[in-house]
Nucleic acid binder design. Structure first.
Lengths: 139, 139
DNA sequence: ATCCCTGCAAAGTCTTTGCACTCCC
DNA sequence: GGGAGTGCAAAGACTTTGCAGGGAT
C-alpha cells in the first residue's frame, strides 16, 4: 500500500538513520564524498553508493537542500524551512544561513516576463566570509 | 616581452579562431563537449582537450561567461558586456539574454552584511521558456 | 517470505594532464 | 629556432548502475 500522497514508502535502515543524524548535526553543506569520508572516520561502515543514493532520496523528499559548488560537486544540507529560500554560505568554514528574498523572486518573475519568458525558475546563492571566520583570523 | 598588463601573450591559431567564431555565431551557452561535437560535425578538426583549454583561456580573459548547468556541466558563451550581469536562459532552445539587476546586487550585499558576512559574491541565473519557444509549440 | 536496501565493483561523464609533435612569432 | 599551442591517450574526480546478499516489514 502507499502512504496516499504518492511518495513511495521508505524503509527505516541503519544507513539512513546515520546519514540523517549526521546531516542534522551540522548546518554546513556536505558532499556525498565528504559525508562518506566523515562516516568512515567515525567508524560508521556505510557504502559510498548508499550515501549517494540516500542523499538523492532525501533531496527528492525535500528533506535536504542541494546545490552545486563551483567545482561542480553536489552539496547537501538539512533543510530547515520548506518554503522557497536561498543560502548565505561561508567560504571559509562552510556554515550557512537560510535567507528569504521576496523582492528577488518578484524581480526575477517580472524581468523574465518582460522578456517574454514563462515558467521561470532561478538559482541564487550568496557566498562570503562569516563573522566568526573574519573575526578570528580575518583576511 | 609582455603586453604590460600582466595578461600572458596569446598566439593566434587556427583552433582559437574557429572556437571564437563559433562562440560568436550563437547567443547560446555551449559545453566544451557540445562545442567539440559541433566543430567535428562541421568537419573542423580540433581536439577535445584544446576546446577545454581554449574555453578556459577565454574565460580567464573575460571573453566568455561561464556557468554550470544543473547536470554540473560547465557552459560557455560569448560575453557581450564586461560589467557584472546575469542571464535569462531558455530551457527549451538555450538562447540567452543578459540582464542587469542592480537591486539584486544591493540586496545581496546588504543581506550578507546584516549577517556579518564580508567579501560577498553570488551566483544567480534565471531559467524559463522564451517567447519563441512557447509561442511556437507551447507547453 | 517479500522485495527494498546495501555494499562492492564496474562503468559512465566531464575534465585535466603528460608528452611529443607542430606551427606561430 | 624557441616555446606556446595542439592532439592523443591516459588519468582523475564525481556519480551512477548492475548484481547478489542482507535486512526491514
Amino acid at each position: 500500500m502507499s502512504n496516499g500522497v504518492g511518495q513511495p514508502i521508505r524503509r527505516s535502515t541503519r544507513a539512513r538513520s546515520i546519514i540523517r543524524e549526521t546531516l542534522d548535526s551540522t548546518d554546513k553543506f556536505l558532499s556525498a564524498q565528504g559525508l562518506h569520508e566523515l562516516l568512515t572516520e567515525r567508524g560508521e561502515d556505510v557504502g559510498l553508493a548508499t550515501v549517494y543514493r540516500t542523499l538523492q532520496l532525501f533531496a527528492d523528499d525535500g528533506d535536504v537542500d542541494c546545490l552545486r559548488d563551483s567545482d561542480g560537486e553536489m552539496l547537501y544540507r538539512k533543510c530547515l524551512r520548506q518554503a522557497h529560500h536561498h543560502h548565505l554560505i561561508c567560504r571559509r568554514c562552510g556554515s550557512t544561513q537560510e535567507v528569504e528574498a521576496p523582492q528577488l523572486e518578484d524581480w526575477a518573475e517580472r524581468t523574465a516576463s518582460q522578456h517574454g519568458f514563462v515558467g521561470v525558475s532561478h538559482t541564487f546563492e550568496l557566498y562570503g566570509v562569516c563573522a566568526a571566520c573574519h573575526g578570528d583570523a580575518d583576511a
